[in-house]
Design a protein around this nucleic acid. Structure first.
Lengths: 344, 344
DNA sequence: TTGTAAGCGTTATCAT
DNA sequence: ATGATAACGCTTACAA
């Protein structure tokens, strides 16, 4: 199969095909877009041959210009270094490819103030819709999307005042699973360690669920924030937890994989062993959780589904279907390991 | 700052601005592209005001169509689930954003046969160049890129016959660092565990460097491949390693983070402890390496630099500079931890 | 210095 | 059923 002639100057255009087939550009266009209908078989085959011969592919740019639709999906992620964002990206990219869309990526790198810039840049390329896994810090970002009148799907983080489909882990349920599991194993004084909430909806929801559920269960429910580079503070929080608990076994529920790492470091620094000196469950399954200490218990998010469903939601809307904004909550799955085994 | 008027129908075009400012489209275009030169100050300010008032942003699609340049960079990654690919993506995305480019992503998901499809799709959108972190399995992919006459940068994996800039870890040096370190610590019989080489240049280079260097040092240098789901085989290889070594301490050099995981599992299954029963160094630093056992020694790739430099290389070429194909090898950095401490 | 007009590669609206 | 032709939003000769 020899490569197509590849005219050195520029790509082959619809005009080339038309000339080659001895028809008008309009006919070629019709062949491409309507194929069977509106076309005499003989002409159709003539055009088909020419297309083949020249290896012609229509320019999506020109098509976008003309039709105002680009077959592009804009994806804004808060931080591509976060495995969760990657999982979303992956699911979205897959679904998009299948539906014939291409993904344009904008990574905020945790700089929330760039959110509007991202949306603007993507909108300029006529993306047909957005998937947003954003910081939610910029109240104007919602307007920005609304202004373009393009459908959007929010992932993981709700955005105050933006009305759009929303796909996420069922945060409250996940926290309840973690707490129940720890209580069932005999841990009695619980500390929820979160990244600084800072207005991020998912973080706030998890903290709220933790407070509510521990109170309902009548057990000690404390909350601490673990920020970057604050290892000392976290160790301090753990020490206080144990001091306050007396002889009741203490355990930590970590809000995500990053926090799990920080808690692991703090525990190591204190010389505490998981499953013995400290019970532990962390939200977010990782490939390494089973290798740390006696194995870290985790609550796995259905990341693949989240990404896939987010993209599907968007694509459904791009195909013109119209629903009221949906909210899709997916259950997490507890993976019990040594760190949450029966308390001493 | 009220949001711009946001005409409900379609975006504001250059014509709108021209009308608002009472000038011609050409003048607006000149203002946008040449600003200072070619424009009387009064008109310039008039246009500037109009642009501001309408919140006008030119359509990159139309610009691309006209100029044949799109300010888009095509990025093909072998597997977005691989942290290395993510690091590249991240560096590339950052550099691209700074230079005013946007990244179009195509993830192969380890399906090498889609490589040409990816290049075609990206080329159709007039990407100005490619960054390829690919499988290298498709010999025609190179032609595909060449055919479009667009610059490309290869990352991590060379592509037979494609002549392009190449950015990568200095594989031979990294392997030598690992081997030297293990030998210096007293480990004597070494096993290199790799993913199936399968024609991937970086994998082959590392294996070759290992064979060569261990022979030069006159120590035992064995090689095993660890494929997905072959845990048993890997355990078997480790057992044989030790049997053959007699009383000489045995150690593993793992080819990447994935293999590190597999070796860790195998060691755990055998009940061997790193740093005592088995020396260990793994290529690729991870956020969790310090938490496993006595800490896993790793060789960190300068992933950020790799991504950034790859993008910079490409952008330099996009700006018209012309060099012969460059090959940029970056040194890895050994992080010694408990797993490679002095052999018993 | 500014405006007019052609054209980038498509598709859609007319005729024929 | 097919072909001219006019857009889409922009840039760039060429005129003025």
């Amino acid at each position: 199969m020899p490569p197509p002639p590849a005219r050195p100057e520029g790509r082959t255009t619809i005009a080339d095909v038309a000339r080659e087939a001895g028809v008008s550009k309009a006919t070629v266009s019709r062949f491409l877009n309507h194929r069977d209908t509106l076309l005499s078989p003989q002409i159709a085959t003539r055009v088909e041959k020419a297309v083949q011969a020249l290896g012609y592919m229509p320019s999506p740019m020109a098509q976008a210009l003309k039709r105002g639709r680009s077959r592009l999906i804009g994806l804004v992620v808060a931080d591509i270094a976060n495995p969760f964002s990657v999982a979303v990206l992956r699911g979205a990219e897959k679904a998009a490819q299948q539906a014939g869309y291409l993904v344009m990526l904008f990574n905020l790198g945790n700089e929330s103030e760039r959110e509007r810039e991202a949306i603007e840049a993507l909108a300029a390329y006529q993306v047909e819709g957005f998937i947003l896994n954003t910081l939610g810090a910029d109240p104007h970002a919602a307007d920005e999307v609304a202004r373009h009148g393009k459908p959007a799907v929010l992932v993981d983080r709700k955005h105050a005042g933006m009305q759009a489909d929303f796909v996420s882990l069922d945060n409250a349920d996940a926290v309840r699973q973690g707490v129940s599991h720890l209580l069932a194993a005999g841990w009695r004084e619980l500390l929820y360690v979160s990244e600084p909430v800072a207005g991020v909806s998912s973080r706030a929801e998890r903290v709220a669920a933790f407070r509510e559920f521990t109170r309902a269960q009548g057990v000690g429910g404390h909350v601490a924030e673990a920020a970057e580079g604050q290892g000392e503070a976290l160790q301090q929080a753990l020490r206080e937890l144990r001091r306050g608990a007396g002889r009741r076994p203490v355990a930590v529920l970590a809000s995500n994989a990053l926090v799990t790492l920080r808690v692991s470091d703090a525990a190591a620094a204190l010389g505490w062993q998981f499953g013995r000196d400290l019970g532990f469950v962390g939200i977010d399954e990782t490939e390494w959780a089973h290798l740390v200490g006696p194995g870290l218990s985790t609550i796995a998010q259905p990341t693949d589904d989240i990404g896939r469903i987010a993209a599907s939601c968007l694509i459904e809307r791009l195909q013109g279907r119209d629903f009221p904004p949906r909210q899709i909550l997916l259950a997490g799955r507890l993976l019990a390991r040594g760190s949450s085994q029966r308390a001493p």
